[in-house]
């Protein structure tokens, strides 16, 4: 106890957890983060604080445009993101934070503390808003049959699935990213740290005009799902060689005739990483297509890809976990002791 405190002073470093948490609730996020630099036990106490749902702080991003003062000198905020940092101060409104690095860019994916963004010309970057590090992702290769728009060869990366993030404090930029392109030609491409270019995962079984809904890395293979629920699988464990690497096809679960006119498929892994998860949200169209659709329900299935003839199993409960799907890399959160998250919710 006394080892961490000076002389006759009180053992502040070992302040009981419930008292420390009470103090923490009266601090804003900046002071709380500063506390992590005081000593190892306070760093641990801040990290273990149950009122913080995830690794703190949480950065919640929306697609709303930034609002800014009319006399603000910043131009071109139109496509910028409205970023909200949560604070743990219960009575306070969340703090809105603007990130200079993200002006003029869209966020198309995230994992851990890294955000993947693209600009209008499809230049993709990984940005770590906490450390300020950024990594330029390789350019998208130019294909002969790319559609032209306004005189430029126009792609649109709708999603970057950040499977592996660069390790903290290293400059080598080791990452693994999957890009989904959302304007014909639509394709799946992967890039690893130090690649000079995205590698397009060829797929002769499928027309270039068809869209991929989601993709994920699972047991060393790339899985990409399409609207019908079918999944294309590229084995990239021995590196990618396009001559060998036409995908296998994996039939999706039989979800019957879609009851609703629109749906979106997602892929994820089970908490232990052992099985592949297939999620499908369905609903009815929203008048403004850019807003997505009104989700009215979700179906969830799992499959062990290593077991031959293993069928998809319907999942109806996630136990004491929540699953988060969307632009962010899918992640699980335990709901034990965390009142802010609903039990077995898919968000």
């Amino acid at each position: 106890m006394a080892s961490q405190s000076l002389g006759a002073g009180r053992p502040w470093a070992d302040l009981p957890t419930d008292i420390f948490d009470a103090v923490l609730r009266r601090l804003d996020i900046f002071d709380a983060v500063w506390l992590t630099g005081v000593c190892t036990s306070w760093a641990k106490a801040v990290a273990n604080n149950p009122s913080l749902p995830f690794d703190m702080p949480c950065l919640l991003m929306t697609h709303e445009p930034d609002y800014y003062d009319a006399d603000d000198s910043y131009d071109d905020c139109m496509f910028d993101l409205h970023k909200r940092c949560t604070t743990r101060h219960i009575d306070d409104e969340p703090v809105t934070a603007f990130m200079r690095e993200l002006w003029g860019r869209w966020w198309v994916g995230a994992n851990g503390s890294w955000i993947a963004t693209v600009d209008y010309y499809c230049n993709a970057q990984l940005i770590n808003p906490y450390t300020g590090d950024w990594i330029e992702l390789p350019p998208v290769p130019i294909l002969p049959d790319v559609e032209w728009s306004h005189g430029i060869r126009c792609y649109a990366i709708s999603r970057i699935v950040l499977c592996e993030t660069p390790p903290l404090g290293s400059d080598n930029g080791a990452y693994l990213a999957i890009a989904l392109l959302d304007r014909p030609p639509r394709f799946v491409a992967i890039a690893r740290g130090s690649d000079q270019s995205w590698t397009i995962l060829k797929n002769k079984k499928r027309k270039w005009s068809k869209r991929y809904d989601d993709a994920i890395m699972h047991k060393g293979k790339i899985f990409a799902v399409v609207k019908s629920g079918d999944i294309y699988v590229w084995d990239v464990r021995a590196g990618y060689d396009e001559r060998l690497c036409e995908p296998e096809m994996l039939r999706g679960p039989n979800i019957g005739r879609p009851r609703y006119s629109v749906r979106q498929c997602y892929l994820a892994e089970t908490v232990d990483g052992g099985r592949l998860l297939f999620a499908c949200t369905y609903g009815s169209p929203c008048p403004d297509e850019r807003m997505g659709f009104y989700v009215e329900g979700m179906l969830l299935y799992e499959l062990d890809i290593n077991v031959a003839h293993d069928g998809w199993r319907r999942i109806t409960s996630l136990g004491d976990h929540s699953l988060f799907l969307g632009l962010n890399y899918p992640f699980w959160a335990s709901t034990q002791g965390k009142t802010s998250i609903c039990m077995h919710a898919v968000v």
Binding site: Q4, C39, W42
Partner: peptide
């Protein structure tokens, strides 16, 4: 804060550097 509360800095230089780097945005 260490001075106020009489707490000894028990981070290794490596740990301290990592914390500084991770939390640079707030520092």
């Amino acid at each position: 804060n260490r001075e106020t509360f009489g707490i000894v800095n028990d981070f290794t230089p490596e740990e301290e550097e990592e914390i500084c780097k991770e939390n640079e945005w707030a520092f």
